[in-house]
Nucleic acid binder design. Sequence first.
RNA 1: GCCCGGGUGGCGGAAUUGGUAGACGCGACGGACUUAAAAUCCGUUAUUCGAAAGGAUGUGGGGGUUCGAGUCCCCCCCCGGGCACCA
Length: 808
Amino acid sequence: MDNYDFKKIEENWQLIWENNKLASCDVTQSENNFYNLCMYPYPSGDLHMGHIRNYTIGDVITRYKKKLGFNVLSPMGWDSFGLPAENAAIKTGIHPKKFTEDRISNMRDQIKRLGSLYDWDKEVAAHDKNYYKWTQYLFIKLFENKLAYKEDAPVNWCTSCKTVLANEQVIEGNCERCDSEVTKKNLNQWFFKISSYSEELLQGLHDIGDWPENVKSMQENWIGKSSGVQFNLKINGSELDFDVFTTRPDTLFGMTFAVMSPEHKLMNKILSLSPNSKEIQSYIDVAKSKSEFERMSITKEKTGVDTGLKVTNPINNKSVPLWIADYVLINYGTGAIMAVPGHDERDYEFAKKYNIEIIQVIIDKDQKIDISSKPFIEKGVLINSGDYDGLNSHDEASNSILNYLSKKDLGERKVTYRLRDWLISRQRYWGCPIPLINCTKCGLVPESLDNLPVLLPEIDDYKNSEDSPLAKSEDFLNTKCPDCGSDGIRETDTMDTFVDSSWYFLRYLDSQNQNFPFDKNIINSWLPIDQYIGGVEHAILHLLYSRFFVKALRDINLLDVDEPFHNLFSQGMINFGGTKMSKSKGNVVDPESYFATHGADALRLYILFMAPPSDGVEWNDGGIEGTKRFLNKFWDNMARVSDLQIQKTIGEDDLVRSMNQTIFSVTRHLEKFEFNTGVSDLMKANNEISKYLNENSTVSEETKDFVFNTMCNLLYPFSPHISSEIYNLFSKKDISALKWPEFDESNLSNPSYELVIQLNGKKKFTKVVNTGTSQQEAEEACEVTFNIKASDYKKVIFVKDKIINFIG
RNA sequence: GCCCGGGUGGCGGAAUUGGUAGACGCGACGGACUUAAAAUCCGUUAUUCGAAAGGAUGUGGGGGUUCGAGUCCCCCCCCGGGCACCA
């Protein structure tokens, strides 16, 4: 047949679904709810292939679950605060609000053209004052519960964006957004206390629902739990002491020096005490001037300076020198270490360079290893360790030495995490203002809840120098203290946009609520989200922050759930020309053009069919013709099925069985998110129908209906417009009301199969036999047809309905 | 370096519990229809030897377990992703 008029059909059905409120969900219902969520997009203005993939997968689930009888909630919204709108404003003068809202309306149209069902009544946008009012409300609640705090800290500063960044947003020393250099700066900044949840965030990963292994492992790595011992070192001839953390207390006898990070809080005292204070001061100055990346680079040669001071090893009272070196990081552990060059690569490199003594305290079982050319970090037995000689390294010796230290009150077991508190201040305009006021009398106080939202002020110039753009508005800046009425000055930073996205899925459930961010009861009945679907690029940032947010809100009694997302599905990225599609690389493939040339249904089907959805793929539109061809053939076949004369026909039993097998298989694939094979099942079934139609012109009424209903129904989640159209055309009914088809379990297997006949494990012949054939019958058949006598062989292995193997 | 994935035809990719490797689609080739082309339909398409019948090889490489391995075990190579001076 000719190409069907997909443009007309798709527009028509989208209108019908909208008018019938097909996507509308009553959230007050308490039974059979299914919260199906796709990550809300940043409104860049244009839908890209990643969105198409995400929202197609989401829609397959929505429509499938609806057909199973679930009350499905599938909302959509906008992650609409963020830098691009502000940069565009600087460049073009268009106000970020207008810029953003124009783009939202364009993107909303594109999403609708894809045909995915969203309950638009629940739409939220992060930049909307009815939304960010509640972001501010939640911020204040966190502040009141000491989960948000302001502190001086060395922070990541992007020299180009002129804003601070969270650790999670620094990639190899560069800004995640603009790739510019990130430096360290000491600033008074806002943090969320995510680190108090380290252990729970880690443990939660074990009993969460179905999450991809790689995402769990990325979060695990990021949290970075490590167990060891923390103990105290005293600086000889002074009152000074400091803690060090180690995972290898078993190597304590091998400590030949100690190292402090240049940023260590004791540094001023060290300077006054040390005979080498000049050298130390200049070393600190140099370290400060280096970029974060230079400092962290593993390839860099280690540097340091001897303080001339000594510390005492608590296990043997030996004095060892104290050094300052920037290979010890202030942010991890205690910012100081015991250095055991014999058994640690970094300490070894340092000791070699500065000619510091290296002692071997662990030897392998064969007593062969020596450490003259490299440190020994594997398991072995202790030597040169006094009473501990002969103990096994790592666990056994560590426990003994820990016991000694804790008995003497010198040290204790300690768990450290790599995860640090979440820095959320941003020196930018287009974000949610931090609703705190610096009162001249009371200090830092939250804006009164009645005065929320703290609105973003109008300003003329969005460029930020060293200060936040909001500081340019006097009207915004100067205010009165909500507690005492004295003069106050507002905070001028805005929040990281990941704060907005840490709770949007809660607001969807109650987006019109004027009194609270959401109704606790509704949240409790809908969370955790049954299925969350989004890109793997959010594995750490958004997914970890949201998990923290929900736990924090639980602890301040705003909701009663532990985890936001029960099942998570991460779709792979779509690349083009070997790399990620991006405007700056000019390799963006625009989905719009395919709406026009092939239609949304063909594009959806192709994007599902091209690869397993969790895999990354290289975009290649060669195959979209194939899915288009399939849809044409499908329509043609359904029309021909409808035209068949009514009369029971011999071949139709096979067709009925094939339909049963297809229902079984498509259902199984949908449940496992294997959409590519689900589509191929439909193609196979379509081919079966073609075959039947070429050989027959009649069918029983029952089979005709079964084939027609089943095929349209199975295609519906994948390509909903065309299946709705065909079903309506030939049956005058609405397919969305049709329940997901059931299969007849007794009619799944074929009456006969090809028995594989092997001799000594090698396939030699095949023979068609009845399903259920016994070993004896199979042996007889082999003898009759191929003259293979079971008695000539030592052993016969028979697997029912599969193979027979003669051995010997 | 560490932690996750993964490696199957010309290409994208299929293969319940170990049981006919290559489903489905793309591309290619041959044929039908057509004045012609497109579209459509039918057929062929892992490699290799062979005219054919038929044989041999084959899931990154090497070893192993098994009647039988893409699938399980050990070692190695390569690719993608994440983390990375984390003590």
